[in-house]
Structure formats: C-alpha cells, structure tokens
C-alpha cells in the first residue's frame, strides 16, 4: 500500500489520526495530507489542542479515525 506523506515536510507513513484529522478539518477528498506538526502550524494552533480534538472526534463516533 502506498505510504501517505506530509505535503509540507515530507514525513512518511502518516498515522491514521493524522490522515483522519487532515480530512476532517480540510476536506474528505483532500490530496494534501499533513503530519500533526505541520497541520498545527498551518492552522495556527497547538499540537496538544489538535490531539484533544482527535479524541473529541473519536468520542463523537467519527469514522475517519
């Protein structure tokens, strides 16, 4: 299976959480995937905050994670 790579820093093997969060916050059909650090920088929020959001989305039953 093709490795998912961060659009900004090139980090390979993005996790399911990183892929799910990018799709959740930007677009389900996005081709531009971000690692957690780059997504936090792009959206101008803390990584810890994004981690909290991931847990919230999981609690809501989001199937992207």
């Amino acid at each position: 299976m093709e490795s998912k790579v961060c659009y900004v820093c090139g980090k390979e093997n993005l996790t399911k959480n990183e892929i799910g969060l990018t799709k959740k916050l930007l677009s389900k059909g996005t081709k531009r995937l971000y690692c957690l650090d780059c997504l936090a920088e792009y959206l101008e929020v803390d990584v810890e905050f994004l981690l909290e959001k991931i847990e919230e989305f999981k609690t809501q039953g989001c199937t992207l994670f």
Binding site: K24, L25, L26, S27, K28, L43, V45, F49, K53
Partner: peptide, 13 residues
C-alpha cells in the same frame, strides 16, 4: 466547494 463541517471545525479551533 467547501465542507460545511470542516468550516465549522476550523471556526471551533
């Protein structure tokens, strides 16, 4: 062309 859900979550952030 934009997901309303994504927009809502970015505003929430």
């Amino acid at each position: 062309g934009v997901s309303g859900e994504s927009l809502m979550h970015l505003l929430d952030l």
